[in-house]
């Protein structure tokens, strides 16, 4: 039986370009203190979203983050400097800057594939850091599920862990004793097991640039 060679991996530079563009655009939005610059920054972010082919829905949903923040900042401006059209515009500009700085991250999140992010991490970061970060992200759903299991079991055992219990000191005590302590022990156990398993399989390995354990 003949094996066909594995298809070549797609180039990594578009992903790296996306990452650095998102960081640069967010920095530009934060530093755009005048309306023309802010407009340029908004146009560039919109172009970035179009180029990354980000779906519209998650972006539109984030519009609602802008409103509470704008009202809070506007309230502070009115309190400090009194009412006025200029004050309104100033508060709008500051809120828009903070909101626009947040958008490239959303675009990036919806356009990066996990496989490419992992390859990028192994290219940019030291080997152990890349392995730890990728393993931690992969293990996050497992850890959260274990955390939820511990929560359910402790509720069945009669621990005071419902949201209403946190109004009383007993709820906080139960959270530390019966929820956080087992969760921390579980994390220690999982990290110890993964470290042992990786080292038994030859981590950190020899070849520079390989994505461990996928390419090992």
């Amino acid at each position: 039986m003949s094996h066909s060679p594995a298809p070549p991996l797609p180039p990594l530079w578009p992903t790296a370009l996306k990452l650095f563009s998102a960081i640069a655009l967010a920095a530009l939005a934060l530093l755009s203190r005048t309306w023309p610059l802010l407009l340029v920054s908004a146009c560039l972010i919109a172009a970035f979203a179009l180029m990354c082919r980000t779906p519209c829905r998650p972006l539109v949903r984030k519009v609602w983050i802008f409103l509470p923040q704008f009202s809070f900042i506007l309230g502070l401006y009115l309190l400090r400097l009194g009412p006025g059209w200029n004050i309104f515009l100033e508060a709008l500009r500051v809120s828009l800057q903070i909101w626009l700085a947040f958008m490239p991250g959303i675009v990036l999140y919806h356009s990066l594939s996990w496989a490419q992010s992992r390859r990028l991490a192994y290219t940019l970061l030291p080997r152990q850091t890349a392995f730890v970060l990728c393993t931690a992200v992969i293990s996050a759903p497992l850890l959260v599920r274990e955390f939820q299991d511990i929560y359910q079991v402790q509720i069945l055992r009669g621990a005071r862990l419902t949201p209403r219990d946190f109004l009383l000191p007993a709820g906080w005590r139960d959270m530390a004793q019966s929820l956080l302590f087992p969760a921390v022990v579980q994390c220690l156990k999982t990290s110890s097991e993964i470290a042992q398993a990786a080292q038994l399989r030859g981590f950190p390995g020899q070849t520079k640039g390989e994505i461990w354990p996928y390419d090992a």
């Binding site: 730890v132 970060l133 393993t135 293990s139 996050a140 850890l143 959260v144 994390c187 990290s191 080292q199």
Partner: peptide, 27 residues
């Protein structure tokens, strides 16, 4: 479970702290 974690084990625990910090903020 061993009580003496290796350097990699400690790094993984710190990674879990970071990822749990972020996921708790989302959840």
């Amino acid at each position: 479970m061993t009580h003496d974690q290796t350097a990699l084990g400690h790094a993984l625990f710190l990674g879990f702290c970071a990822v749990l910090l972020v996921s708790s903020k989302i959840l």
